[in-house]
């Protein structure tokens, strides 16, 4: 009996949802549906902020969603299907798995819907334009600065956050490629902590034990960096080992301000959101846009983090 009540409540809730969505969608403005790799992380919220800003300026309506976890391929496919059911004029997407959405996006394109990839993007065949950070380039920029800080000599450990997500992999590949140009610098260990703060903290601690002569640790996202920061502090080595990070957060900014984190790479998530919507709007108006729009990346440290061109790119 009780179970029936529960089922009934769920069904009613679902139906209300189904009815409510098209009602809300009844709007004259062009509609752009954005689907990100994730949702909770500050990075996506910053992308969303930029997108909303552009939507306001260009007079379009956007929705922004993403699965809770950057591995939920199915959830993302469902989100895409639901979004298409609401008849958007354009889809902007960062696909977890480009293959799994290729078919759906091709159909959408055939119906005249504009498809823009952002961040991880979508398959080349499906996309009208891609708006993203060049992650290999970002890794190389981190490596250049690491080499400078090491005076071209020393040992490096890497704490990555994913071995499967393409831009995570590219951040490490770019770093390795550039470091290979410095014969005096060696990469002695690479471990992956899933961007989980605690796991990354444990990894950093064991790294200092396994390689007592390590000079610098490069981390490939916010979780890895803050994790390593906590780990190094716990073993009292934060001042002995240089820590290079990626992205930003309140904790990272604090660390960088005190110099305990020597510097980090920031992308321009707000600009990415903005340029994605801008590109979609231009395509909707029949204008030409470049097939790849690089939103850039920057090195920041205690000396320049308050500068006019950096401060707006850092988020809490």
């Amino acid at each position: 009996m009780k179970r029936n009540v529960l089922v009934f409540v769920l069904v009613v809730a679902l139906l209300t949802g189904l009815v409510a969505v098209p009602v809300m969608a009844n709007d004259e403005k062009p509609y752009i549906a954005m689907i990100a790799l994730g949702y909770g992380h500050q990075f996506w919220q910053a992308v969303r902020m930029g997108a909303e800003q552009a939507a306001e300026e260009f007079g379009v309506r956007i929705t922004f969603e993403g699965p809770e976890d950057e591995t939920m391929v199915d959830r993302q496919v469902d989100m895409l299907k639901t979004a298409l059911a609401n008849k958007p004029q354009a889809i902007a997407m960062a696909a977890i798995d480009t293959e799994s959405v290729a078919g759906i996006l091709q159909e959408a394109k055939a119906e005249g819907i504009v498809v823009v990839g952002f961040d991880a993007g979508v398959g080349d065949a499906e996309s009208d334009a891609k708006v993203s950070t060049d992650s290999v380039e970002a890794g190389r920029l981190a490596a250049e600065n690491a080499a400078r800080l090491l005076n071209n000599e020393g040992k490096i450990g890497i704490i990555g956050h994913s071995q499967t997500t393409i831009d995570a992999v590219q951040r490490v590949i770019g770093f390795q490629e550039k470091i290979a140009e410095f014969p005096g610098i060696q990469i002695v260990d690479i471990q992956y902590g899933e961007g989980d703060h605690l796991r990354s903290a444990e990894i950093a601690k064991t790294m200092t034990l396994a390689h007592a002569d390590i000079d610098l640790i490069y981390t490939s996202n916010e979780g890895s960096c803050v994790g390593a920061y906590i780990g190094l502090r716990e073993v009292g080595k934060i001042r002995d080992i240089m820590l290079v990070g990626f992205d930003s957060s309140a904790a990272m900014k604090d660390g960088i301000r005190t110099g305990e984190i020597v510097g980090a790479i920031t992308q321009d998530p707000v600009g990415m959101g903005y340029k994605t919507v801008e590109a979609a709007v231009k395509l909707l108006n029949g204008e030409q846009v470049d097939s790849f729009i690089d939103t850039g990346c920057y090195w920041y440290d205690a000396s320049n983090m308050d500068a006019d061109h950096i401060a707006p790119l850092l988020y809490d």
Partner: peptide
Amino acid sequence: RLGSAQPQLGVG
């Protein structure tokens, strides 16, 4: 330990 509550932590 983290000095913060991380809302997306705890997976797995």
